[in-house]
Design a binder for these strands. Structure first.
Lengths: 208, 208
DNA sequence: TTGTGTATATTCACTGGTCGGTATACATCA
DNA sequence: TGATGTATACCGACCAGTGAATATACACAA
């Protein structure tokens, strides 16, 4: 078909993305995805070997855009690394305040498929989270003064995923801000003891 | 039946608990629960109106014991509040290192049922998490010197639930330790700026 | 240009199986 | 006798995946 408008495979992935993300994996039938994509189920099974394949494709399609969004939010925020990371959380809080917000698809899919250890969707989730962690780690390394960049990146990830879970459970975006505040404090107190662990920005560029 | 050995209802809840927790809600059929409990499905439906009721009963049965376990771990650890909270995470890391460990049932159930907003299981999950948060908050309030006890309790909860999610995804308990370290640092830096935000324990009892 | 072959893409109708829940009858005991 | 509990067998809905046939597009030869 026309390559510019709706290549069938992409339309199916898009439909799967909307449905899987908003209702969950097991709650959405293959028939529902096919109907949403305007395609017969048999056509869907022409493009994907199984529902599991479709799930994996859905997550793989979200990996890069998700990371890029984080990087954009980071770049758009002024201040030191702590403030920039906090900016990510503030943007997430804004997203999470929409009633249709459904948290992190990678996390939720992994939870739904937890009894299938080697499932490609779980591998995709792991890879995605690692990619974000590595990106944060590289930022803290460039920062230079940070004592344990890897540990710090992990702790920010813990706050991030914790916020996804808690905000989804309580439907209260203020937890996202609390997570951002915690992340910023952890980053600032990870800098050499120079500055007091207070509001004022810590050193922005100070190589060892 | 005999009240001391296996009251049917409790046996069903116990069976549901094992299955739901280890495989997930949607992955476990009512028939499977009935069989595990050594009871016919009709008997199960005599004691519970629906599968949803059973799910709620499963979570309600876990609320108090879970909190009690946290409180025991907290009490058993020596040191200041930061060290005691870190002790909880260390104990959780030990639990999480067992290959059969499956994270937090409240969180996972809430994720599985996310498209049923008012579901009793979600309410149970919310209540449980709030209860832990309130308990932490009361500890920080008793500590006296903590600046914003509620905010701090929320941040510890964020790290806790983040650790549940991330450890489950990566199957790497060291994230649990990283979360404990972050929690301890947040608690110590929440005390009035007296001490440097460093390794040495901050003041243990110092009323305002 | 027309005819033929082939790979891609799509459809309709169907299967085998599972699941939540129920109808009905039977058992036990106060 | 009536309340409580158990057993067997079943229903209707749904669901992942399939078989067989068909449509489209493009290659290349006559």
């Amino acid at each position: 078909m026309s390559d510019t408008i709706p290549p069938t495979r992409e339309r199916i992935i898009a439909a799967a993305g909307k449905l899987f993300h908003s209702e969950g994996i097991r709650a959405v039938s293959v028939d529902a995805v096919a109907e949403k994509a305007g395609v017969t189920k048999r056509t869907l099974y022409y493009h994907f070997r199984s529902k599991d394949d479709l799930i994996a494709a859905y997550l793989e399609a979200r990996d890069q855009p998700n990371l890029a969004l984080f990087q954009r939010w980071f770049a758009e925020t002024d201040g030191d690394a702590a403030a920039k990371v906090e900016g990510i959380f503030r943007n997430l809080a804004r997203s999470a305040s929409h009633p249709k917000w459904k948290g992190c698809g990678f996390l939720r899919t992994s939870v739904e498929l937890i009894n299938l250890p080697g499932h490609p969707a779980i591998l995709a989730g792991r890879a995605h989270k690692k990619r974000i962690e590595d990106w944060l780690c590289s930022i803290f390394e460039e920062e230079g003064a940070v004592k344990e960049p890897r540990q710090l990146a992990r702790q920010v990830i813990l706050l991030l995923d914790g916020a996804f879970a808690v905000v989804l459970l309580h439907r209260d975006p203020s937890y996202m801000e609390a997570a951002g505040d915690a992340a910023a404090r952890l980053i600032r107190t990870s800098l050499p003891k120079r500055d007091a662990p207070d509001v004022g920005r810590a050193c922005t560029a100070l190589d060892p």
